[in-house]
């Protein structure tokens, strides 16, 4: 499997919820903004983290495509 994460940096405002729900997937900068735009996840065991992190974003800034 291959999941591609897209983060709309203009919407991300640093809630850091993605990284709370997906600590092994989503990376944050020092201010708490998501820096995982463009990341491709191939490890099946991380699928739940990818999806839960996306769905926890209050700004709806994250989308995930099954590549």
């Amino acid at each position: 499997m291959e999941l591609k994460i897209t983060v709309d940096r203009s919407k991300c405002s640093g809630h850091a919820r993605c990284a709370m729900k997906g600590p092994d997937v989503y990376e944050l900068d020092d201010e708490g903004f998501c820096i995982s735009d463009g990341k491709i996840v191939t490890d099946e065991s991380l699928r739940t983290q990818v999806i839960h992190g996306m769905k926890a974003c209050p700004e709806r800034a994250i989308s995930v495509i099954e590549a």
Partner: peptide
């Protein structure tokens, strides 16, 4: 639970 208890947008 994508609540906005801490607000949303630049004033989060």
């Amino acid at each position: 639970n994508r609540h906005i208890g801490f607000g949303a947008g630049p004033h989060r």
